[in-house]
Design a protein around this nucleic acid. Structure first.
Lengths: 140, 140
DNA sequence: AACTCATGTAACATAAAAAGTTTCTTAAAA
DNA sequence: TTTTAAGAAACTTTTTATGTTACATGAGTT
């Protein structure tokens, strides 16, 4: 099953942006990620819509952080990128009146919902400045 | 992102098989699930390999339960069907020497691993006979 | 023995979605 | 006015689960 690595990639980019302290172009980010500038714009614009980055056109333009890293959590970025389910497991809805299907779906959903809540709670606890610590520690 | 609903579907089938108490053909299961008999064989054979169902060829043949429902857990079926990750979120491995990528991946993986363990633990607690209760309750 | 029914398996086709690409527009700075 | 960069639309490619076809194998029936 295909995986969505946009969260990992965008976090990576955001922390690098913090250290650069100047605008980065989509082209540069694309090279860094081994992808395409249009794909970068598509993804970064989701973060822009939520107010985590700014985009500036023209000479010297590009992407900058709109908030300090300690004001952004993993959950913020995760939510900006995807409203889709965290899980690769899906339920069925073909026999909605079948009590067996209902029982099966309830049992699975109960567990996935609890685990999903755990993930969101934990993502909310991690601010991006924590991810930068190891890096800055290495520099000093 | 595409979802794998085989767990839900196979649980549904197994509980029905328990109530039928006779062999069910791949063709019948395919009709029930709105899919193809070859797809059914592919999926059911994963359960056969792990000893949860039997397959019998020829007249009157088909699929039967190899164990009572109270000896099969959600985890058993889940494991039989997939060794793939539970999560739609993936990590990156393009800059394995980059401390930022490392920190990002560690942070995400820490959370997903804990949530994954929770799911497996909870799946292990649910035996399939519990899923049949609601149904039998309705019959009596 | 011949026939029918059912699984086993391989090879191929289809479908859906994410990712990549091309092309053009818009805006800002040099 | 030219260059640089994002915004956006339309299209192509790639990937992968699912579906399909065709044939082999084996078990029970006639």
């Amino acid at each position: 099953m295909r995986k969505d690595s946009r969260l990992s990639r965008m976090l990576h980019v955001l922390v690098h942006m913090h250290h650069l302290e100047q605008a980065v172009t989509s082209d540069n980010i694309a090279i860094m990620l081994g992808t395409n500038p249009v794909v970068v714009r598509r993804t970064m614009s989701l973060l822009r819509e939520q107010g985590y980055v700014n985009a500036v056109k023209g000479h010297g333009g590009g992407w900058t952080l709109a908030k300090p890293l300690h004001c952004i959590t993993l959950l913020d970025i995760h939510r900006s990128l995807s409203e889709a389910s965290l899980f690769t497991i899906g339920l069925t809805d073909e026999h909605t009146n079948c009590p067996i299907e209902k029982a099966v779906n309830l049992a699975i959903d109960d567990v996935l919902h609890e685990a999903g809540q755990l993930v969101l709670r934990r993502f909310a606890e991690v601010t991006l400045d924590k991810l930068a610590v190891e890096y800055t520690a290495k520099l000093s």
